[in-house]
Amino acid sequence: MDFLNALVALSNFVLIPAIAYGSQLALGALGVTLIYGILRFSNFAHGDTMAFGAMIAVLVTWGLQGMGVGLGPLPTALLALPVAILGCMALVLVTDRLVYKFYREQKAKPVILVIVSMGVMFIMNGVVRFIIGPNDQKFADGERFIISAREFKQLTGLREGLAIKTTQGITVVVAVIAVVLLFWFLNRTRTGKSMRAYSDNEDLALLSGINPERVVMYTWMIVAALATVAGVLYGLDKTFKPFVYFQLLLPIFASAIVGGLGNPLGAIAGGFVIAFSEVTITYAWKKVLTYLMPEGLEPSGLVQLLSTDYKFAVSFVILLIVLLFKPTGLFKGKAV
């Protein structure tokens, strides 16, 4: 019984949150890694692209709620998602035309593009704050739980409850759909294959008649879609706040690098590595251990390795370790 209780507590506080967070990070890291693979720079504006997409979703959700349109138990934000994706696509395509295209034609060094992306990051950040303000915004509605802790206890008679939030369920489902679609696109369609070819060997892709501007355009559109989905899911699950998306940049980059920059599969793996490390290291294990340890040996403290204030330190340390020992990442990435 104690073992079951421990397992439930572990699932409730570590596994489920980490899976949801990992899915969000993986989607973010996929965007970063695609930009890196095709446009060959680290896009610092990615966090704010996520914020922008999520912001449109928030605004549309409010509009729909105002009109009384909803999805019943599911959050209305899912209805707003397609609109948000389109809006975000428009934003990144305009940005590419106005800003990045020039440097691409100049064949500027990657570091210049990184600086430029920082400029873009601040403009996007400014736009988001200008439109929706810097504060927390709530836009989640519908049923809060798929199964609540109380229901679970009644159902099983265990002392520990297992709560699965609707947003966590949706996060996983949507992330799986997005990833399946992405890999289908990259591996099965002509355009997707041409993107991989361009990422693999730019000169040869040109020789094969692949139009780089088309590849770049599709890349931005996919990245905008991924960023919006990631941003909305994170916002639903936690909260929407512009500055938080800037802070997500570090775990997202860590995920992409840990997996191997430029490698989509690696980005997904990296997202989960970072998420699980962050959650396990900042979780107070007292409860789980109390169930598992023999009587009298229960831990007196919280058994929390690191306070949650330092969760970014976890991704940072993992990042440093990877850079020190395997700069190309777990899966073979492009960068050294």
Binding site: F44, L249, L250, Y310, F316, L319, V336
Partner: peptide, 17 residues
Amino acid sequence: GLRSDYLAIATLGIAEI
């Protein structure tokens, strides 16, 4: 000694920490 982008990301991280 690694790619230039990595220094950017590492410094971004250390500052936050």
